[in-house]
Design a protein around this nucleic acid. Structure first.
Lengths: 338, 338
DNA sequence: TTGAAAGCGATACCAA
DNA sequence: TTGGTATCGCTTTCAA
């Protein structure tokens, strides 16, 4: 492997000149630049990442901490990861993949050993134990999610609270006033992943503001969970005309169940889902949905990290506005039936 | 951030001694070791990764090249990734995540700039354009998959050819002799991901060896694809009594379709699936299946990389033996009906 | 059993 | 516009 000195010798310049050609941090005459670049190409020179990191205190690597348990939401996780890696590359950075189960120790390990310039964390819990540790790192971090105490830390996420409002308003405008919420599984609430709370809060707020009759219930995984949840909702609010489903996994069993019991979508029950758009589209009945903009969130997370790295100003809390796409799973209730 | 010199000073030893305490590459008196370790703990010392890489020519980082397109098989990809990261950590390595779409350029970038010690690639195609480039790298690589030309390169995968044999034999032993194969989507064949070919080859071989009547068909995504595929199979081989499904995505629509048309599983049609076990379990009828041992494959890939790195002998081609789990979706055909 | 010091391969400051 | 060189923090050889 050729070094910068080899290149310098071949081009008849000093190593520092080669370095400056590479970084563009000082003006170089066109002629010199050409000679250097020719030498670089000819020798197939690639700067040594470690040497660079040592001399410049920059690694050009971001840490991405992902929950690698293999359960629900895997596709969404992958979408975040894809977006982060792609955006990072666009900024000339690479991505070191960490698992959430290494916890604070893992973060400290890569941060203290100077393996990364910044960290991006996903699957943030309400009282995430990792947050306080992050504050002590010299590297900046960006959270995908919104913990209770996020003072001074950059956060990016869908505005789930607003999303609940959007879903309810969409239904209310079409004449629905008896609406059930199929929530995430109790496990999600237990883990206190914050999007569950935030959605629920928004749901209750908007419900009250609009004077709707609503009822909410978490939903256990599987067909049995869906059945139990629907039964609970029906019992507590007879003749509900619409469901808001904030549970990707429950979607399919729920639709199967409705069909099996002769309740048509949207004729008998309207449905709004909060899920990735490809999931909404792939259902037996294409669902009106609010997308989880994983790509945007991931990209913005990286861009926020970049801004922090070069000392630019950032908006610490970025909650992306929800956007609802009507796909025909909500029907208009005629005024006479209201 | 304290350096090794700070530690040395605090412990009253030379920096080299600290280094040797850390690496264990030469004997240190118990007393000295204790003093050094105390100083390390007290100062919160973590060796600088870049400096280490520069001095030792080892990064303790593996590259993992994953297909980050968001389509089918996302869960399997995640399982591979999980296993690789976990295994890597167990060997004191971290994982740099690259996307397949960077192609050869990405591999060369991280290899030439000495960011990684070894590379692990997934989603290998039959005539993968990246292979020849890999041979020229100074870092070893391990493929998850089996390209046509894999001379000299370590490969790990499920033995899909044997898996087809296992599936067919399981059915044949239960009296089935008219069997259809629901293959992957044409897109997979077009991309020439090698597992499709290998499974098909094994299927045809075993079919011939056992004197079975079989028919095979790729299967387009979605409910329509499943319907078309099943119709084709039925047309070409009337009264087939069993299906082998090598298409995770088609599984659910296929079972829905069978139910809708009054064909019960396993009473009327037996089914063997090749898919992750959680998918097989989550179906309306738990399916007899051959697992895709993503965890084992990922772990073995990392272990192979480790062996290559420290010059130990490796078996270049590791095809894992398939194991079939009966879950009741195959029925025994009584001799009178054969 | 330990220490001294020469690299490793870049960057960036100080000069010219 | 360019060159010389100290420096980054560690590993490892050579000596003692």
């Amino acid at each position: 492997m050729p070094t910068i000195n080899d290149v310098a010798r071949a081009a008849g310049v000093s190593p520092s000149t080669v370095s400056y050609v590479l970084s563009g941090r000082r003006p170089i005459s066109a002629e010199t630049r050409a000679r250097v670049q020719a030498a670089i190409a000819e020798l197939g020179f690639h700067p040594h990442a470690g040497a660079r990191a040592l001399a410049s205190s920059k690694t050009n690597v971001l840490a991405l901490v992902a929950p690698l348990r293999v359960d629900v939401n895997v596709p969404v996780i992958m979408q975040f990861a894809t977006a982060v890696v792609t955006a990072a590359r666009a900024h000339n950075h690479d991505v070191l993949l960490l698992t959430k189960d290494e916890g604070t120790a893992g973060l400290e390990r890569v941060a203290h050993s100077t393996m990364v310039d910044a960290l991006i964390l996903m699957d943030i819990e309400r009282d995430d134990v990792r947050i306080s540790g992050l504050r002590r790192l010299k590297q900046p971090s960006v959270l995908i999610g919104l913990p209770a105490d996020h003072a001074g830390i950059a956060c990016v996420d869908l505005d789930f609270q607003a999303a609940a409002g959007t879903a309810l308003r969409h239904l209310a405008e079409r004449g629905h006033h008896r609406i059930g919420l199929v929530g995430p599984s109790p496990a999600v609430y237990r883990r206190q992943t914050t999007y569950a709370d935030r959605f629920l809060t928004g749901f209750l707020e908007t419900s009250a503001a609009l004077g709707l009759r609503t009822v909410t219930h978490p939903c256990e995984p599987g067909a049995d969970g869906a059945r139990a949840c629907l039964a609970d909702l029906d019992a507590e609010l007879p003749q509900l005309s619409a469901l808001v489903v904030h549970n990707e996994e429950a979607l399919r069993p729920l639709l199967d169940l409705l069909q099996a019991t002769g309740r048509r979508v949207p004729e008998d029950v309207s449905v709004v889902a909060i899920c990735p758009r490809d999931v909404a589209i792939a259902m037996p009945v294409p669902l009106t949905s609010i997308d989880i903009p994983a790509h945007d969130v991931g990209t913005i997370a990286v861009e926020t990290a970049m801004r922090l790295l070069d000392g630019r100003r950032v908006e610490l809390t970025r909650l992306l506005e929800p956007s609802l796409v009507e796909r025909g799973s909500c029907r208009e209730i005629s005024p006479s039936h209201r």
